[in-house]
Design a protein around this nucleic acid. Structure first.
Lengths: 298, 298
DNA sequence: TATGATATGCTCAACTAGAGCATAATTAGG
DNA sequence: CCTAATTATGCTCTAGTTGAGCATATCATA
């Protein structure tokens, strides 16, 4: 059996939330995601990345999950005849560790249309206008394109869906509205990144937004003890949405995800808030996987 | 920046359901998953795999999704100094195409404890007994191991969770109950596969079981038109569970996933069943992503 | 002491999911 | 033709979940 040869590279999407802003670790003044060679010495991909991030950033990575492996021919072909395989990972870094140090950029710089916490962002009007033009430009695919734009950006009655971050970026790419796609810089929406790094970031955002709904990974971004509002703001930052406060607490408490530390915090000027800590044991005692199948007990 | 070199390989988990049995495409008489080199000629990983599968199996692949990339040092080091990166994919093949031809093996041969359609399989008693021994063998980690076994195999009150297929295999591996882990063949549970192929298959099963709950991918496994019972049996085969018939139809119909073709089928000896077809437009008109966040409309 | 702010408790209505009864439309056997 | 067996399909009832919002508690500060 013939075996293909390739260059292997690791790319990390490291996320932290500080000051109610989700941030991603970057290099080159925010123009690229940190990446490095896949060294032979490492036992596994995970351990390789973990060591390497530790070394580069001095922050321990809590949660680490493989994102996607890219190897398209058109990316990054600086080595003729060869090919680069990029294995990307999503890592979550504790708030305190990943504080305001250089290299951390708010992820909504790159995706200004994704933050709906202050209501629908104004950019969306421009985006939709330009997507309309793009759709109309091809009479054959016109209808399909309009439906796709409406659906992806929540104009089809279904409303905005925060999980579709990647699909939105891909649509903008296809429509030539981001300069990575080869359009002029003046036409670009949001901040650009090297090669396909912004796409990888979008992959990470979408994955994280989906994941926080069925796995207790948010806590990897939190300090040891926190108030429920702090937890809520962190999730809101990630999802780019605001949540209903009372229902949020109900959800958290009924799932037994946290326990009171006994302490309180009165930083905020109102009634002091109880402090909570994550119940690490839930990781081994609960499925947390919601079934959507109509089971029969038989 | 140094770049690591590696050999790149694609591995496919191709799934079809025939005769109410989920099957996986294999080579070497069921001992390995089909795999092939990542050729330079291919534009993307996906297209490379698609062509290659087409060529090998003569079946068109409907849905194709990247599963995971493995590159641990201990796997498959037949080339000294080098390293193999295996990029695995999950592919769904239409019932008719992937029919009873050779190469297709029922996946419960490899994971007999995963099929709960006829009730709790008897093997589970033996498995739990051996897991208890394993847990007791290390006094320090005893409690943790017992909790993990109970949770993974549904003895903790939470009940059996079909999504945990991968975790169950990994637990058995750790406990040395499958011969891939180095235990003797006589100790092995289920049918063995080459290298870590059974683990990759478990990854595919777990992914597919989770996916059918929030994305309409089952239809990739169905013929053009089908009865609702046929659809139900297919899902039951994948999940390894039986479903409540009336509630199943309610779920499918209220989601507008299918439409009547007008025809009926009376193969089964009872009242003829209406035939349905998948409404392909739902792929572009609906999010189908259930939010678990308590949104505020503000 | 009043006011503003945040925290926290509680209710209510709409909807969803699990379970099972009832009826309809066939085929097979007498 | 009549009856039983078999599968399809419709409907109901109940418990639980979710979205929304009112009410009360506890603090800082003017």
């Amino acid at each position: 059996m013939t075996i293909g040869f390739a260059h292997a590279e690791l790319i990390a999407v490291l996320v932290a939330v500080t000051g109610d802003e989700p941030r991603v670790m970057t290099i080159r003044s925010g123009n690229a995601l940190p990446s490095g060679p896949f060294e032979m010495g490492h036992r596994t991909l995970q351990s390789g990345l973990r060591e390497w991030v530790q070394e580069q950033t001095e922050h321990p990575v809590g949660y680490l999950e493989q994102l996607y492996t890219f190897a398209d021919r058109d990316r990054n072909n600086d080595i003729p005849g060869g090919r680069t395989i990029s294995i990307s990972y999503l890592g979550l870094v504790n708030e305190q560790s990943g504080a305001g140090r250089p290299g951390w950029h708010g992820w909504y710089e790159y995706f200004p249309w994704e933050d709906h916490r202050q209501g629908r962002p104004a950019v969306l009007d421009e985006i939709m206008a330009r997507l309309r033009n793009w759709a109309d430009a091809d009479p054959a695919r016109r209808d399909h394109r309009h439906r796709r734009a409406d659906f992806t950006f929540g104009l089809d009655g279904g409303g905005w869906n925060e999980d579709l971050a990647l699909q939105r970026y891909e649509l903008l790419y296809e429509a030539g509205l981001v300069s990575e796609a080869g359009c002029g810089v003046e036409a670009n929406l949001g901040r650009t990144m090297f090669a396909d790094h912004r796409r990888i970031l979008a992959t990470g955002i979408a994955r994280l937004r989906a994941k926080i709904k069925y796995r207790p990974v948010v806590f990897e971004l939190m300090p040891e003890s926190f108030t429920l509002l702090r937890l809520q703001r962190t999730i809101e930052a990630l999802a780019g949405l605001t949540l209903h406060k009372q229902n949020f607490r109900r959800l958290i408490e009924q799932q037994d995800l946290v326990e009171e530390t006994g302490g309180t915090e009165s930083e905020t000027g109102g009634r002091p808030a109880k402090l909570f800590r994550f119940r690490h044991t839930v990781l081994e005692e609960r499925a947390l996987a919601g079934t959507k199948l109509p089971l029969s007990r038989n």
